[in-house]
């Protein structure tokens, strides 16, 4: 079985994608609401990812 090598960013993006899809599908009723909530969750994951990355960069100097 081949081993996959992903960067932190790629792995986090994939993780955010899977969780956002599941959150959108299971928490909202209509397809439109599911899509909007899924995109919202994905956006929140991305914002947190970029925010924490900057925080760590600034923290390390």
């Amino acid at each position: 079985m081949p081993k996959m090598n992903l960067t932190h960013f790629e792995a986090s993006l994939l993780f955010a994608l899977f969780i956002s899809v599941a959150m959108g599908l299971t928490t909202k009723k209509t397809a439109r609401e599911q899509l909007i909530y899924g995109l919202y969750c994905f956006g929140c994951f991305l914002a947190t990812l970029v925010g924490l990355a900057w925080l760590m960069k600034l923290g390390h100097g």
Binding site: M4, H8, L14, F15, F18, A22, T26
Partner: peptide, 20 residues
Amino acid sequence: HVHDYGTKFLVAAGLINVLA
């Protein structure tokens, strides 16, 4: 870090199934 993410992905798959 790749192994570590892999471990988290395996648990996350189960947690997505709990949501389902």
